[in-house]
Simulated scan of single mutants.
Amino acid sequence: MLVIMILITGATGTVGHHVLELLSTDPLRREPLRAISRQPDRISVAGVDAVAADLDDPPTLAAATEGVRAVFLATAPGPTIPDHDLALITAAVRAGVTKIVKLSAIGTTPESDQPDLGSHAPAGWHAPGERALAGADTLRWVSLRPASFASNALSWADDIRAGRPVINTTGNGAMPVIDPADIAAVAVRALLDDRLDGTALTLTGPAPISVPEQVAVLADLLGRRIPVTDLTSEESRRHYLDQGWPTAVAEEIVGSQLAVREGRHARPTAAVAEVLGRPGADFAGWAARNRSAFTG
């Protein structure tokens, strides 16, 4: 007898692990859960079928999608997103999956990767997957386009603990950063409730906040000064190249940061509150819950 399941990809990632934990306790869920990872032993949620699969290895995806009704699709950030999205979508269609909820990015449209539009990552990386979902006759889909994650501030933790300055690559540009747990909560509603089918939701926190303002929140929380070093776009490009990023990727990242510098994604949306029936967490709330990460 074939068991119908919900499949979570990216189950050990920033949003995926929240999705898995929320689904595991959601009273509306009736189906078993399966989660895939290259290292399935890292998936420790009780009652979850943890299987080894690799988005670069199509036969493993065929096995992982067998008997699955719905998929939460989250692929690792970077230029491999289009290939990984399409590999999973192809396997899902062949397996008879009927719904995919895709984790995309703010500013993405199906046309985002067209060069004449001047699009930059991550929107351009997610566009092929969004087009594939919209073009699959047998699939119902939801695309989640979140703003920058509040948890990206964790990348500053080592510097903050060591008293080094936080590197700011977006100037005074503000974005309504979002708590990844709120993204996950919306994803769970989308997986379990058909009323969101066929929609692309731009998910944000309640208010725009710049990097210097985020650092100020952390400084107040920790009770000490945290210095900030501002980089120009050219300095940012060199910074990423010095870290070992390929030139093309560094260019894409700097281009996406320019959108933040210019305030192109500064406007909050009401999508989180409309779906969840409550306001999303602001950066200060996220920081307070994660204070220990910055104190060691």
Rank of each mutant, 00 (worst) to 15 (best):
residue 149 F to A: 10
residue 151 S to D: 13
residue 151 S to N: 11
residue 152 N to M: 09
residue 152 N to D: 12
residue 153 A to E: 10
residue 153 A to P: 01
residue 154 L to V: 14
residue 154 L to P: 00
residue 155 S to H: 09
residue 155 S to T: 12
residue 155 S to Q: 11
residue 156 W to M: 11
residue 156 W to V: 04
residue 157 A to V: 09
residue 157 A to L: 07
residue 157 A to G: 06
residue 157 A to D: 05
residue 158 D to L: 09
residue 159 D to I: 00
residue 159 D to R: 15
residue 160 I to H: 02
residue 160 I to C: 07
residue 160 I to E: 02
residue 160 I to G: 02
residue 161 R to Q: 15
residue 162 A to Q: 12
residue 162 A to V: 05
residue 164 R to S: 14
residue 166 V to H: 00
residue 166 V to T: 03
residue 166 V to S: 01
residue 166 V to M: 04
residue 166 V to E: 01
residue 167 I to V: 14
residue 167 I to E: 07
residue 168 N to E: 15
residue 168 N to P: 12
residue 168 N to G: 11
residue 171 G to K: 07
residue 171 G to W: 05
residue 171 G to D: 06
residue 172 N to R: 14
residue 172 N to W: 15
residue 172 N to A: 14
residue 172 N to Y: 14
residue 172 N to Q: 14
residue 172 N to M: 14
residue 173 G to A: 09
residue 173 G to D: 06
residue 173 G to I: 03
residue 174 A to F: 01
residue 174 A to N: 06
residue 175 M to F: 12
residue 175 M to L: 15
residue 175 M to T: 15
residue 175 M to A: 14
residue 176 P to H: 10
residue 176 P to I: 11
residue 176 P to Q: 09
residue 177 V to L: 14
residue 177 V to C: 13
residue 177 V to M: 15
residue 178 I to W: 12
residue 178 I to Y: 14
residue 178 I to P: 09
residue 178 I to L: 13
residue 179 D to S: 10
residue 180 P to T: 11
residue 180 P to N: 10
residue 180 P to S: 11
residue 180 P to G: 08
residue 182 D to M: 08
residue 182 D to G: 09
residue 182 D to H: 08
residue 182 D to R: 04
residue 183 I to W: 01
residue 185 A to Y: 00
residue 185 A to F: 08
residue 186 V to F: 05
residue 186 V to L: 06
residue 187 A to V: 03
residue 187 A to M: 05
residue 188 V to P: 07
residue 189 R to S: 04
residue 190 A to E: 02
residue 190 A to G: 05
residue 191 L to R: 06
residue 192 L to G: 00
residue 192 L to R: 01
residue 193 D to T: 00
residue 195 R to A: 02
residue 196 L to D: 01
residue 196 L to W: 03
residue 196 L to G: 00
residue 197 D to Q: 00
residue 197 D to P: 03
residue 197 D to F: 02
residue 198 G to V: 02
residue 199 T to Y: 00
residue 200 A to V: 11
residue 201 L to G: 04
residue 201 L to S: 06
residue 202 T to K: 11
residue 203 L to E: 02
residue 203 L to K: 04
residue 204 T to F: 00
residue 204 T to Y: 03
residue 205 G to M: 08
residue 206 P to V: 05
residue 207 A to R: 15
residue 207 A to L: 11
residue 207 A to S: 15
residue 208 P to D: 06
residue 208 P to I: 03
residue 209 I to T: 12
residue 209 I to G: 04
residue 211 V to E: 08
residue 211 V to Q: 12
residue 211 V to I: 13
residue 212 P to Q: 02
residue 212 P to K: 02
residue 212 P to F: 07
residue 212 P to E: 03
residue 213 E to H: 11
residue 213 E to A: 14
residue 214 Q to D: 04
residue 214 Q to A: 15
residue 215 V to E: 04
residue 215 V to F: 04
residue 215 V to W: 06
residue 215 V to C: 08
residue 216 A to H: 13
residue 217 V to R: 12
residue 219 A to M: 10
residue 219 A to I: 09
residue 220 D to K: 13
residue 220 D to T: 13
residue 220 D to H: 11
residue 222 L to T: 05
residue 222 L to S: 05
residue 222 L to N: 00
residue 222 L to W: 03
residue 223 G to L: 06
residue 224 R to L: 10
residue 224 R to P: 07
residue 225 R to K: 13
residue 225 R to N: 13
residue 225 R to E: 15
residue 226 I to K: 04
residue 226 I to S: 07
residue 226 I to G: 06
residue 226 I to C: 09
residue 227 P to L: 09
residue 227 P to S: 14
residue 227 P to R: 05
residue 227 P to I: 09
residue 228 V to M: 04
residue 229 T to W: 03
residue 230 D to T: 08
